[in-house]
Structures are given as C-alpha cells and as structure tokens.
C-alpha cells in the first residue's frame, strides 16, 4: 500500500460522513413534515455522495483490488473510524438537528482547511463538498435557533440535546496517528487547531 497513514486518514474523514448519512437515512419517510423529511434525506445523500469519493480514492491506493463498496460495507463495526458524535441514535428532531449542527460546524472548518491539502484528490473532494456542507450548516443552524427560540418545550428539548451531545465534540479535535502523520506531510489537517476557530 502506498501509505497506510493516508488510507487510514481518508477513512477517518469518510466514515464520519458515512455513519451520519446512514443515521439521517434511517429517518427517510419519518420526518416531522414532508419538507423537513426531504431536506434531511438530501443532507444524507450529500454525505453519502462525499463518502463515495473518499472511498473510491481509498480503494485506489489500497493496492488490494478493493472497491468503494468493500470499504463501505465489508468491515466489522470496530474497524469504522467515525467519531461517536455521528453515530448517536436518532431520538427526536431537535436532537437530530443538534447533532447535525455540531458536526456541520466542524465539517466545514475541516473541509476549508483540507482544500489546501498537498494531496490533489483530497483537495478536490474538499472543495466540492464545501458548498454542500455550508448549506447543511445553514439548515441545521436555523433549526437549532428556531427550536431554541420557540416554545418553552422546544427550547428545553434543544438545550437538553446540546447538553447530551456536547461531551462528544471533544473527540472531533483528537489527533489520531494518521492525523498527525498526514498533518506533518501537509496532506492532512491539524484538527486540534480547529478547536479555537
């Protein structure tokens, strides 16, 4: 394999989008209204679409004759590298929007940095994803504000969701071995620096 670290680095980014995309996909047909249902499923499809680009690239450098589907589906659960935030189960709509917003803010910061990666493929995937993720953040952020400013019940539920989700945000900024190695080479992003942003 060309680079074990690069392979793991790509999966570290892509698995977050895959798992969050799947979580949102579970809600297809179950949204609180037709309009929000379509919006959530749109975001899910955006994320899974981005995941495909990453996995296709990972499959290419794996040197093992793998396909994107092998990487997406043929792993045991412990081999997925996603952060715990994105796999938190869907409970209520406010929770789903809170989870989305916390991830979207991080995701946008990450992609903005990643577009200056020395790795041209990663830079191109990041560049393409930024517009999608900007909209995700706008949508989820509007809902967090809307529910927070809404009725006492919606504000309490939103506050509780953020309270429950917040401890999972620290992990977004933890550097894995692959993160450290790739950041040193100018390929990856030093996520520990994003925390201040």
């Amino acid at each position: 394999m060309k680079s074990e670290h690069l392979y793991n680095y790509i999966l570290g980014i892509a698995d977050n989008s895959l798992i969050l995309g799947q979580r949102l996909g579970e809600l297809c047909g179950h949204g609180p209204s037709l309009e929000t249902d379509i919006a959530g499923t749109n975001i899910s499809l955006d994320l899974i679409g981005q995941t495909r680009s990453y996995y296709q690239y990972a499959a290419k450098i794996s040197g093992e004759n793998k396909t994107e589907d092998d990487i997406a589906f043929l792993r045991l659960e412990r081999h997925y590298k996603n952060v715990l935030l994105v796999e938190q189960p869907n409970t209520h709509f406010g929770f789903v929007m809170g989870r989305q917003y916390l991830f979207d803010v991080f995701h946008l910061l990450l992609l903005k940095e990643l577009q200056s990666s020395k790795d041209e493929t990663l830079a191109a995937i990041a560049k393409k994803g930024i517009k999608e993720v900007s909209y995700h953040k706008r949508f989820s952020g509007d809902w967090v504000k809307r529910l927070g400013d809404g009725t006492p019940q919606s504000a309490a539920k939103m506050q509780e969701a953020i309270h429950d989700l917040w401890p999972y945000t620290q992990e977004l900024f933890d550097m894995t071995d692959a993160d450290t190695a790739m950041a040193l080479e100018g390929v990856g992003v030093d996520v520990s620096k994003l925390k201040k942003a």
């Binding site: 209204s33 037709l34 309009e35 929000t36 379509i38 919006a39 749109n42 909209y135 706008r138 949508f139 509007d142 809307r146």
Partner: peptide, 14 residues
Amino acid sequence: HAADEEMALENARD
C-alpha cells in the same frame, strides 16, 4: 408548508 419566509425558502430549495 413552512413556519416563516426563511424556512419556506430553504424548504423550497430542497
């Protein structure tokens, strides 16, 4: 359906 014009725009987009 949407609660206000901002949400209507976002919903229309989607």
